[in-house]
């Protein structure tokens, strides 16, 4: 991990529980206590009804491949991996989440929209693990 050169998230007080979750092997989202709206990215209120009463919960970690590109011009730190997919997964709970796809060829043939995905966690520093997704059951 010491030579990990890619961007590493820097948690804020509002997002820290999310990153504590991924470190512990859980995908945590928030739900509004007033209207049940599922919230991502994290914030201490509900953007639908303005309630400040929101609670963290453990998400299923399941979703489907919603859209992606296969990037041929690598960002700094990604040179060894290009071309690589930058994907958005639509979680079963509703929110979209940007991610990378692992355990799967990075090709249009292998990456079919709407295929079932499940979360895995990749440690990238002492404190941060990134949520990534692989084809369900892979």
């Amino acid at each position: 991990m010491a030579d990990y050169r890619k961007p590493i998230p820097q948690p804020t007080p509002e997002t820290q529980p999310f990153w504590d979750g991924t470190k512990a092997g859980e995908l945590r989202l928030q739900r509004c206590d007033a209207c049940s709206n599922v919230i991502f990215p994290p914030r201490p209120f509900c953007p639908r009804c303005a309630s400040r009463s929101v609670s963290w919960f453990k998400a299923t970690g399941k979703g489907k491949l919603w859209s992606y590109v296969i990037n041929h011009r690598p960002a700094p730190g990604f040179e060894q991996e290009a071309p690589y997919a930058i994907a958005v997964v639509k979680l079963d709970e509703g929110p979209h989440m940007m991610t990378n796809i692992v355990d799967c060829p990075q090709t249009p043939e292998a990456l079919q929209l709407d295929m079932a995905m499940e979360v895995v966690f990749q440690p990238v520093s002492e404190t941060i693990s990134l949520p990534k997704f692989r084809p369900a059951g892979a």
């Binding site: 820097q10 948690p11 990153w19 990037n71 960002a75 940007m98 990238v124 990134l130």
Partner: peptide, 14 residues
């Protein structure tokens, strides 16, 4: 920076 950049999005083309 927390929820997009770590996945190698390198500007508008990607």
């Amino acid at each position: 920076g927390q929820f997009e950049a770590p996945y190698g999005a390198s500007g508008p083309p990607s």
